[in-house]
Design a protein around this nucleic acid. Structure first.
Length: 471
RNA sequence: UCCGGUGUGGCCAAACGGAAAGGCGGCGGCCUGUUAAGCCGAAGAUUGGAGGUUCAACUCCUCCCGCCGGAGCCA
């Protein structure tokens, strides 16, 4: 909670600059300060002053500023302040005689930086719909909800790094442009160069061969795990899938840890520990923002997060899950049968109705999983796992990787994949192979789970979805 | 890509085919250590676009566009 190193933009003052969050704390009472931010509302009192609510994004709560009519620019500037206007306020933090806030600032000076025309500024002093705010994505972080969501997003990113760094994981930057089509994990975006309006491809390829935006850093991540032992990636991922749902975006962020000398058991334990860690951190570090989400987005949010923090996650094998779904008496649109993938409705039943808590499903039939997953001794299943959470569905997908050279090569052939394209990947099995495992966590899905926000477009600053790449 | 829904003043939202409610915001006034303040008042809409049916279309039909939800796929 240090002092900002940036001097306040105010030629008349060298006073200590505080964030609004700092100024709201009782410890700040008595300090002469400078505050800078955007006005949320102004209320005029006939008692000779106006109330300003100032917010700078440092917290959900605003600081109440008392602007007396005796200020030299009261009529010229203060009276024109409306929602969205930017100001520098100098003054003294004091105990607030009113209800609703511990502190307030009695202004000794207010500098107006920019007005926001009430006829055109779209944010009003009222609730707005998600859809409308999405259409003004450049201004929506100024709203209470999106301020809260993006503070939580920042904190969760930090918590993820901390979680791994504290456990000795090395952060690896895997390529965003890649030539490997990663076993067809969804449609990919091609990367091409332009010669004027003409796309250069084929023999003219910049990289000498077709390239794509990454759909996963996993294969590259494995190479680093087989050298630095425990690694993780955290970066953008791209899918050109033409899907219109609340859970899909064309550009999203993914966390992919990879652990050497680890089996599926250890992989599941790490995934569960991480989810718990993040939820716990959110409850501790983002209490005010979560409380807001709990009141305006999802009434059961905090209770659910506390539940996730405090209770053990369930685990079932795919085989058990199928039996459980077949015997539950519930009718599903899609069939439940050994060998078929679990549908969204099945996953939701398991986590929302049956277990009523996060659940990990493991050991899936090999036929529905990619070539790199480790074949189990039963010959039928692979060491794969999905961590399901209520309301979202799959939030983590992972597996133990096939470390046996001959089995991996057989898998490649079985799935009709070009062996030569995976030479470097196969090399890991040729030279000092080790059992290893990892998983992918969708960052936005985690944020949806933590904030209760129901649409992925509302937890990413500028969402990219089919047909939309505004801002 | 498929299925379903939806598009009404700045925002939200009513209107069985028969004169386009209401709320919020903004504006003006009153009141007020207020706090999404309270009270009063006035203003603001050729109902997404193009056709069509009808004496009459927000309402029914066709096409287009946007948005939302779901499915598939996945994170």
């Amino acid at each position: 909670m240090g002092v900002s190193p940036v001097p306040p933009v105010n030629g008349t003052s060298i006073l200590m600059k505080l964030s609004v969050a700092q100024a709201r704390r009782p410890e700040s009472i008595g300090q002469e300060v400078t505050l800078q931010g955007w006005v949320r509302t102004r209320r005029d009192s006939k008692a000779g002053f106006s109330f300003l609510e100032l917010n700078d994004g440092s917290s959900l709560g605003n600081i109440q500023v008392i602007a007396e009519t005796s200020l030299p620019n009261y009529e010229s500037d203060v009276k024109r302040l409306t929602a969205g206007a930017s100001v520098t306020v100098t003054g003294v933090v004091r105990e607030s005689p009113g209800k609703g806030q511990a502190t307030e600032v009695l202004a000794t000076g207010i500098t107006l930086h920019g007005l926001a025309d009430v006829d055109t500024y779209p944010l009003q002093k009222k609730r707005h719909s998600f859809e409308f705010l999405r259409s003004i994505a450049h201004l929506r972080p100024r709203s209470n909800l999106f301020g809260a969501v993006f503070r939580i997003r920042s904190r969760m990113a930090y918590a993820i790094h901390r979680f791994f760094q504290e456990r000795g994981f090395v952060y690896v930057h895997t390529p965003i442009i890649t030539a490997s089509d990663c076993e067809g994990a969804g449609e990919m975006f091609r990367v091409v160069t332009m010669d004027g309006e003409k796309v250069r491809s084929g023999a003219d390829e910049f990289f000498g061969k077709p390239t794509y935006l990454t759909v996963s850093g996993q294969l590259e991540g494995e190479t680093f795990a087989c050298a630095l032992s425990n690694i993780y990636t955290f970066g953008p991922t791209f899918r050109a899938e033409n899907s219109h749902t609340s859970r899909h975006a064309a550009e999203f962020w993914m966390i992919e840890p990879e652990i050497a000398f680890c089996d599926l058991e250890g992989d599941m334990a790490l995934a569960e520990e991480m989810v718990k860690h993040l939820v716990t951190d959110a409850l501790e570090s983002c209490a005010e923002d979560l409380d807001f989400c709990n009141r305006f987005v999802d009434k059961g949010l905090i209770e659910r997060l506390q539940f996730v923090r405090d209770r053990a996650f369930e685990r079932v094998s795919y085989t058990e899950a199928v039996a459980l779904l077949q015997g539950c008496g519930q009718s599903f649109e899609f069939p439940v049968e050994y060998g078929l993938a679990l549908q969204s409705e099945h996953e939701r039943y398991l986590t929302e109705r049956h277990f009523r808590c996060p659940a990990t499903v493991y050991n899936y039939p090999k036929g529905i999983k990619p070539f790199y997953m480790r074949r189990n001794d039963d010959g039928k299943t692979v060491a794969a796992m999905d961590l399901l959470v209520p309301g979202i569905g799959e939030i983590v997908g992972g597996s133990q990787r096939e470390e046996r050279l001959e089995v991996l090569l057989a898998n490649l052939r079985e799935q009709g994949l070009e062996e030569s394209a995976y030479e470097w990947y196969v090399d890991l099995r040729r030279y000092g192979t080790v059992p290893h495992a990892g998983f992918g966590l969708g960052f936005e899905r985690l944020l949806m789970f933590v904030t209760g926000v129901g649409n992925i477009r509302d937890v990413i600053p500028f969402p990219r979805t089919p047909g939309t790449a505004e801002f």
